[in-house]
């Protein structure tokens, strides 16, 4: 087996080419993204560890089978995220579960939430775990996935576009609509 350390310094695209002939190079790629993908699937699905592990593992095997279809002009990580994302969606559909996300009290995310709204930053931070998370989970699934990729996976619009296979303009629109819907739910819930 190839020692992951020997893969250090090698670009993803280089490892993809090597992995086609030797699966142990694919191990390096898996190791490189394993943790990130586990976190992503967990945030995105809110499933238990075993289910998350199954999704990521299946995604790795699927990615390996489709290595020759990898568009190396795009980022390998976007391609891999897309496979994991689709695998997670399929899993949720198969098990008739709705997407429930788990997000953290992230500064950039809070800044984005309060910008152009009357909601105070401190209120958000203070009540994040109580009901801000609940509100975020009430957003439409299409909004939630864009929010996660943008703020918790630190993906730019181009990468989100490649992962979700949507035009960049649509990604921006979804993000903006997510905030509008958040504000509406927040204002409605604040009355009670």
């Amino acid at each position: 087996m190839v020692d992951p350390k020997s893969c250090q310094g090698k670009e993803d695209s280089e490892l993809v080419k090597l992995a086609i002939d030797d699966s142990s190079f694919f191990y390096c790629l898996m190791k490189r993204y394993e943790e990130k993908l586990i976190n992503y699937v967990h945030r995105f699905t809110y499933l238990g560890d075993d289910d998350v592990a199954d999704i990521v593992q299946e995604s790795f095997i699927s990615a390996y089978k489709h290595l020759n279809d990898c568009d190396c002009n795009l980022k390998f990580s976007s391609w891999l995220y897309r496979i994991v994302h689709n695998q997670a969606i399929n899993f949720m559909k198969k098990n008739k579960q709705s997407v429930k996300i788990d997000v953290e009290n992230d500064d950039e995310f809070v800044e984005w939430l309060v910008a152009d709204t009357n909601i105070e930053k401190e209120t958000i931070k203070l009540h994040f775990n109580e009901y801000i998370k609940t509100i975020i989970n009430k957003l439409k699934p299409g909004y939630k996935e864009v929010v996660i990729l943008k703020f918790f996976e630190d993906k730019d619009y181009s990468e989100i576009s490649d992962i979700l296979q949507k035009p960049m303009g649509t990604v921006a629109t979804l993000l903006s609509r997510a905030k509008i819907q958040f504000k509406q739910i927040y204002e409605k819930e604040s009355k009670y």
Partner: peptide, 12 residues
């Protein structure tokens, strides 16, 4: 980070 699972080894 959730429970550490050695997914890469299992997948390989």
């Amino acid at each position: 980070m959730k429970k550490k699972v050695n997914i890469s080894d299992k997948a390989l």
